[in-house]
Amino acid sequence: MAFEVKDVLIVLPAFNEQASIVHTLNDIDKNVPGANKLVVDDGSTDKTADYARQAGAQVAQLPFNIGVGGAMRFGFRHASRNGYKVVIQLDADGQHDPAYIPELLRNLDQSDLVIGARFAGEGDYEVHGPRKWAMGLLSTVISRSANSKLTDTTSGFRASGPRAIELFAKDYPAEYLGDTVESLVIALKSGLTVSQVPVAMRKRIGGQPSQNAWQSAVFLFRAATALIIAYMRPTDPANEPHGEKS
């Protein structure tokens, strides 16, 4: 492994996840002993922060809910300021299996950003209807500009290397789908390389999955809009590919 465990910060954005946070943290310890864990409590009203502290994680508490994008930008900033070389993003609800973390890390040798992808062979996670079309659209467009097959652009299970951390510490969108789709577009436009690792998803320990036809149709519409806007936005000159940072 090119990166040592002490250089890795595992960031768990959490909003009211008291039912699953302890289990998820213990699971990480089992798979990646000695890993630094940062729970970003995104304005929870339950005991998420207390439980996470007791389970041995560092806890940052946002004063109110600002969404996954805000929680993650905080994670990247914190990692950048404290000299971490890798940020692993993992959901606190237990959906993401920490057993894949070593595999994600290994792939960071070749890429700046590695996505844990749900539709790449592993596991039996499936979607249908408009949601499937939306994910297909996102996947096709983004794979083309990445020059690499990316089947799951909305996955929240990712590993970011040093270059991705510096970029995301400055620019990580808080909008809907910004934390997944737009952040990928930002990375690609800034010349970062992105690849994926197939992962199986587990059942959530707490919380409710959101899936009905109307919501899926809305998702399709918002995904297409987010994608178009993301590509239209100008790149921050400081992040241009091949541009030397001062």
Partner: peptide
């Protein structure tokens, strides 16, 4: 909203650094 978000992140960072 962007400014409020940045402030929220900075507050969280200060509190975290304070706690350690």
């Amino acid at each position: 909203e962007n400014k409020v978000r940045t402030l929220a992140e900075e507050i969280a960072e200060l509190k975290l650094e304070d706690s350690i």
